[in-house]
Amino acid sequence: MLLIRAIVRPEKTGDILSELLSAGFPAVTKADVFGRGKQKGIIAGSVQYDEIPKEMLMIVVNDEDKDDIVKIIMRVARTGENGNYGDGRIFVSPVEEAYTISTGKKGL
């Protein structure tokens, strides 16, 4: 199992969730987050904004589904033809175990 964490522009979240659902991946956790990337925030005139609002999507999947999900997120979250700063980041980490609280069942 793998945990995919995608930090994306808030305006792209609805489209990403719709595409994931259409592709058969309905289970997603979403959280509002703030941060900055390599661009070190945004400078507008004499004001620098350090913390940019983003949304983090978290999805635990079987290993074989990783590439499909990453491709969907990359395609839908990218702005412009070649993408732009601030489009986001995707992190993939191993998950050792998962349990359903209501049933006690192990696994997805």
Rank of each mutant, 00 (worst) to 15 (best):
Q48K: 15
V47K: 10
D67K: 09
K12S: 11
T29A: 15
K66Y: 02
K12D: 04
A23D: 01
L57E: 00
S18F: 01
E64Y: 08
G83C: 04
I73Y: 02
Q39I: 11
D65Q: 14
G41M: 09
F34D: 01
K71E: 15
A98Y: 04
G45L: 09
D65W: 02
S93R: 03
G104Y: 07
S22A: 10
D63W: 07
I90G: 04
M56F: 01
T79V: 11
I69L: 05
E51C: 02
P94T: 06
I42L: 09
E96A: 11
A98G: 08
Q39V: 12
N82T: 10
E19P: 00
L57R: 00
L57Y: 00
I43Q: 02
M58P: 06
A98H: 05
L17G: 05
G37T: 14
Y99F: 15
G35S: 11
K54A: 06
Q39D: 10
S22H: 01
Q48P: 05
K40L: 10
E55H: 13
P26H: 01
N62L: 11
S93N: 06
S18D: 11
V60T: 10
S18Y: 01
P94S: 04
P10I: 11
V70A: 06
F25L: 03
D68T: 06
M58I: 11
A27R: 04
I42V: 13
E55S: 14
T103E: 07
I72M: 01
M74S: 08
D50V: 08
M74R: 02
F34Q: 05
R78M: 09
A27D: 07
N62T: 07
F91T: 13
G41K: 03
N62Q: 12
L21F: 01
G35H: 08
S22W: 00
T29S: 15
N82I: 08
A98M: 13
D50G: 09
K71A: 15
E97A: 10
Y99I: 15
K40N: 06
N82S: 08
G86K: 14
